[in-house]
Design a protein around this nucleic acid. Sequence first.
DNA 1: TCAAAAGTGTTATATGTACACCCATGG
DNA 2: CCATGGGTGTACATATAACACTTTTGA
Lengths: 243, 243
Amino acid sequence: MSDARASRLAVSTVIFALRTDDDGLATLWTPLVRRTRDPHLGQWALPGGWLPSDEELEAAAARTLRSTTGLAPKYLEQLYTFGGVDRSPGDRVISVVYWALVQSDEAERAAVGENVQWFAADDLPALAFDHNAIIGYALWRLRTKMEYARIAHAFLGETFTLAQLREVYEAVLQKPLDPANFRRTIESTGTVAATGERLAGTPHRPPMLYRYDVATNLTDGTFTTRIPPGKPDPIKPHPRMRT
Amino acid sequence: MSDARASRLAVSTVIFALRTDDDGLATLWTPLVRRTRDPHLGQWALPGGWLPSDEELEAAAARTLRSTTGLAPKYLEQLYTFGGVDRSPGDRVISVVYWALVQSDEAERAAVGENVQWFAADDLPALAFDHNAIIGYALWRLRTKMEYARIAHAFLGETFTLAQLREVYEAVLQKPLDPANFRRTIESTGTVAATGERLAGTPHRPPMLYRYDVATNLTDGTFTTRIPPGKPDPIKPHPRMRT
DNA sequence: TCAAAAGTGTTATATGTACACCCATGG
DNA sequence: CCATGGGTGTACATATAACACTTTTGA
């Protein structure tokens, strides 16, 4: 029976963190794992694996993230399901792909080794399977969503200055933002709250520290069902930011 | 070995068309099929089925749509993959769900029968599995995307008046739109082109007929990769429309 | 006391909204 | 010749962008 071909289900995760390079510019980085088996053996690929039948999709993505980087995701969302008939030799593979944001200072200390390495997300080598295209799509999604959703704080720690938050936007959107307008835009959304503390040790006027304010982060009630079952909505649109 | 549970892959499609009810208001309708097997036998459910290992995901969604309604989709996009461990008894089922728009006047003549029936999308009975939640999410997606993407013409035929196009927006967004501002907004996007023909037979001034202008429908080039591999981008954002 | 980032104020422009008004046709 | 939807003009409100300016700190 040569026409019997099995379909297998995999879960992979595109992980993003920010890393500040030598000249002080923050850019997007992503961890990849080296393939230790035959399709594309030795090439770099997205972290992931076969889906156990008793594990939730999102849990599998979070586990994958943890086992390759040692980190917990600060943001995790399903990206797309890739199922092209010829995307892998042998059995057909359908990959449910998630994308994740991790806290960047934690990512600096994250696991690396012979089989796990971080790459600049905008300048990747040739990867296994269709993974270059998948990461390209995840990048597009991150950049698009950053313009209307409140996800930037996922790259930062518990408290942060507005300059640090702006740096996240600038790194992801790849354009400078006016500090004055940025401040007003963010403050008007009510997503951040001043802690009362200031960040000391800067060479200049010490900036206020803010905290992501989850209390104000409610849905606007326009539609009842807006998010896939089982997934709370941590996101509220805010006005565009330009220049 | 009682802990061996298989995972199976299914593809389902949420199909939308507009139907004008007795008092002349257009509303969203969706076709459902009656279950003829045991999990939830006799209940209404989304059209779909198991994924053949040699068929593309999108092709399976289009085939499903065709076999239940006899129609071809004018718009088809992946919605989400639902894989909750307990969403179905027996083997675990992972469903890759698509959503589709079909031409509404064709849908009026579409197949119906003992096992296929159209329902008002906002007023559904209790469906099999998690299908109420899935359709609710698809509705949210349709309404959200209608505000920034050019998909409304998928409900209409080759040519249409601006009043017909506006009726689509009003039905989906559930709010009246100012005819004057709607006209300018649509014209400024360049997505429609006047055919030169006018629609005769109305009791009043005959309106111009327009055609969806695919030529101007290019991506804006901000990012290179914006859409999953194999899927061209028929969509360009346009300004919001209110009131 | 000075450089530089934090933070505030003000104005110009673009975009969205409301609505008055003219046009063209079938009845 | 009139009721009605098609189609145009215009003024007002709000959102966004640009940038001058004041404040506060460490060096």
